[in-house]
Nucleic acid binder design. Structure first.
Length: 609
RNA sequence: GGGGGCGUAGUUCAGCUGGUUAGAAUGCUUGCCUGUCACGCAGGAGGUCGAGGGUUCGAGUCCCUUCGUCCCCGCCA
């Protein structure tokens, strides 16, 4: 057979089955492991499907065996041979193809390989699938093409592709079309910092890479496309965090003549389908929680609903308490909240509660302290319980529904926002450390009724973005306090305590849009200069519309149980936005800079005191 | 921008209050081994202890500077 014919008939290693017994097959791939018994020589051959065992027997073909002895890990080869059923002890149940092997008849080496900088085979994970891949991430990124050759990374990339495909198919069924929007676009002042691209044709001007296609997708609604989506790269030049990348992928969508309910009904099946790709089930409809309730009950706007443990406000119950710290905090207008750590009294020692939680953990969250009580033999017990009257103790037991073995943890502060924040963080810390989180559970929810504005450095700023439609209170609002009381028609999709997406019903009235900009402190000239094209567009018969964007990297990471979004991006940047593989970003030549009429400011050595 | 951790063999790590020739596992390599599958057995090679400076009779270890990286907070409409 010619090489060409061989390739046509190529089989994937892990797709061989009992139906192939005694057939001659041809496979291509990489040498995964070698077990040399002096005479008999076993190897695993790996391709994108998995591995299959090769056998070289010197009694059958001495020359071939000698040739095979020269093979090393990661050599790229092709083989032809006979599929043979393994017998008795020789079967390996840990491997999908463990019941067969290939008795090789011919071998050709496409290319040899240097010893790789880290071991690529995942043979050890046959026994222990919990063992994570412990190699420095920068080294993995430097040799990402090898890292991606590993079975688990291939599975993640394939899962990502399948998820994207499921989404495209579903949105197609729903009447959405994919429209591309520019990558070189206009810098906008609101929001995150832009990545800038200098223009060679227009001196001293810059394009910006899009933080999202926000305005373009709204313009597509003005154009009458009715339902748009795009799986698109977005760019934000913000400081990095473990689950953040300078460039990331969003599912961006927008639809006309719709309301919030349409978005919820569209997205819930979509999210279900995404998790179904990896065999995970979610129940719908997703619960809704208002921003206010999320803050009060969970301490943040992205509540983790995989476990209950709601925060309880006991300020009123303790209005006249003798416990001095609580009393003075309440007198200064603060509040007291607590959580009930069910059934952990025996695991949370007094020493741990006071020395670890109260003195180290809570202060690291920004809290001044923590009080605790244990429920034992039907009564509260702690170092401070004597300062609480019988009625107050009874009220606490009722408020928390406390039973024997429970531990109550209290956070008090004169600043109510601090109480929510610290108590919310404590809730997550305790849940993580004492095993309240069911890692197999997927708990989505919609967070709704966000405030339209928030105060930043004493000025009004959009909480979501300035194109979000405010509720009715906006039309009569005039003072800063009025504006802060206005809610928006924004919604966030939160899964397992992570915000995976958000969107809103948009403004389709140019006058309201202009008023929003002016409330945000933009002058008429600013508006015209920054958003003129957009405000103009709204004057030509804009349909009511709204949409949403989903962070696909996070969603795929969650679906594939990956710790970081870097695990589900083929070629990510590291934590400091550097690419160890390509060494980007890099310096450019003076010629390139001159062409762009740019000059680099050299780092100045400051001697000033 | 603020705070913290880490940097020792190709890889993952240990190395105590500073004290001979810096260790382990794994990988690599050589030899032996016919049913292994994380094969086994015996041997070998492999280190400017991130870089620079300082303290000391003596520094992987202590101090300063610097570079790299990871984590927390700010930031991310």
């Amino acid at each position: 057979m010619t090489e060409n014919q061989l390739w046509k008939n190529r089989r994937y290693c892990a797709e061989l089955t009992e139906k192939d017994y005694n057939q001659t097959v041809h496979c291509c791939g990489w040498i995964d492991t070698i077990r040399d018994h002096g005479q008999l020589l076993f190897m695993h051959l790996r391709d994108k499907s998995g591995v299959v065992q090769l056998v070289f027997d010197p009694e059958k073909d001495k020359d071939l065996h000698a040739q095979a002895e020269q093979l090393r890990n990661e050599y790229c080869v092709s083989i032809s041979g006979t599929i043979v059923e393994r017998v008795g002890e020789a079967k390996n149940d840990a491997l999908p193809t463990g019941h067969l092997e290939i008795h090789v008849q011919s071998l050709s080496v496409y290319s040899s390989s240097k010893t790789p900088p880290f071991v690529l085979t995942e043979k050890s994970q046959v026994d222990d699938d919990s063992s994570e891949f412990k190699v420095d991430e920068d080294l993995r990124l430097k040799y990402r093409y090898l890292d991606l050759r590993r079975t688990s990374m291939q599975e993640k990339m394939i899962a990502r592709y399948k998820i994207m495909k499921v989404i495209r198919d579903y949105l197609d069924e729903q009447g959405f079309i994919d429209v591309e929007t520019p990558v070189l676009t206009k810098s906008t002042p609101e929001g995150a910092r832009d990545y800038l691209v200098p223009s060679r044709h227009h001196d001293n001007t810059f394009y910006a890479l899009p933080q999202s296609p926000q305005m373009f997708k709204q313009l597509l609604m003005v154009s009458g496309f009715d339902k748009y989506y795009q799986i698109v790269k977005c760019f934000r030049d913000e400081d990095l965090r473990p689950n953040r990348q300078p460039e990331f992928t969003q599912l961006d969508l927008e639809a006309s003549f719709i309301d919030e309910a349409y978005i919820y009904n569209l997205l819930e099946p979509l999210v279900k389908k995404v998790f179904a790709v990896v065999g995970k089930e979610i129940s719908a409809p997703f619960p809704h929680i208002t921003y206010h309730d999320a803050m009060e009950l969970y301490g943040n706007d992205h509540p983790d609903l995989r476990f209950d443990m709601k925060m309880v406000d006991v300020s009123e119950k303790l209005r006249n308490v003798n416990y001095k710290i609580f009393n003075s905090i309440l007198a200064s207008g603060g509040s007291i909240k607590g959580i009930n750590v069910k059934g952990k009294a025996s695991e949370m020692s007094k020493n741990m509660l006071q020395e670890e939680l109260a003195k180290k953990v809570v202060p690291s969250f920004g809290g001044k302290g923590m009080s605790w009580m244990k429920m034992e033999n039907g009564a509260l017990n702690s170092n401070v319980v004597q300062f609480f009257s019988e009625d107050e103790q009874k009220a606490l037991i009722e408020s928390f529904n406390a039973e024997d073995g429970d531990v109550l943890l209290f956070i008090a502060d004169s600043n109510k926002a601090v109480v929510n924040d610290v108590c919310g963080r404590l809730r997550l810390y305790v849940a993580e450390k004492w095993g309240f989180i069911d890692k197999n559970k997927i708990a989505p929810c919609w967070v709704t009724d966000f405030p339209m504005f928030e105060l930043k450095d004493g000025r009004l700023s959009s909480m979501h973005h300035p194109f979000t439609q405010p509720d009715h209170a906006f039309s009569s609002a005039s003072s800063t306090d009025d504006y802060l009381a206005v809610n928006s028609r924004a919604y966030d999709l939160v899964i397992n305590g992570e915000e995976v997406g958000g969107g809103s019903i948009r403004i389709h009235d140019s006058e309201i849009q202009t008023k929003i900009f002016s409330v945000l402190g933009l002058s008429k000239t600013d508006i015209q200069e920054k958003f003129g094209f957009f405000v103009n567009a709204l004057q030509f018969g804009t349909p009511p519309h709204g949409g949403l964007a989903l962070g696909m990297d996070r969603l795929v990471a969650m679906a594939t149980d990956s710790d970081s979004i870097r695990e589900v991006i083929a070629f990510p940047k590291n934590r400091v936005a550097f690419c160890p593989l390509t060494q980007a970003p890099s310096h450019v030549s003076d010629e390139q800079l001159t062409e762009l009429k740019l000059a680099c400011i050299k780092e100045e050595v400051s001697i000033t005191d």
